[in-house]
């Protein structure tokens, strides 16, 4: 198996291309910093639903439920509930980790 990534250049022989992209990216950053966008003040943040004024807090996405659907679907919050803050639990993890490392070492 030949994994000759290091001997040649990582992006192929594209030093000049990479330099060009680097310069373009630097100009892009400079543009982001220097441009004067319009500020969103209170008036522009008002929401309208069917012609009526709506309460923004009711319709905006709650920050902490950003990925709630995915987390709930894959039951990922079990991992968070396991971090219960109980010291005995954490010490049990250390013990189980030790036993698991030992077992994997013995069987493979």
């Amino acid at each position: 198996m030949s994994l000759n990534i290091v001997s040649s250049s990582f992006f192929g022989n594209g030093f000049y291309t990479a330099s060009l992209l680097f310069i373009i990216f630097s100009i892009f950053i400079y543009w982001i910093i220097e441009r004067e966008p319009s500020l969103r003040d209170k008036a522009s943040r008002e929401m309208y639903v069917c012609g009526n004024k709506a309460d923004p807090d009711q319709y905006r996405v709650n920050e902490h439920s950003f990925y709630k659907t995915i987390i709930n679907y894959f039951k990922l919050d079990i991992i968070k509930q396991a971090h219960s803050g109980k010291l005995s639990m954490y010490l049990l993890w250390v013990l189980f980790g030790l036993i698991i490392i030992g077992f994997i070492l013995m069987w493979f």
């Binding site: 968070k80 971090h83 219960s84 803050g85 109980k86 010291l87 005995s88």
Partner: peptide
Amino acid sequence: DTNKINKLEG
């Protein structure tokens, strides 16, 4: 009681 010292959970 270490079970009650768990304000930093999660």
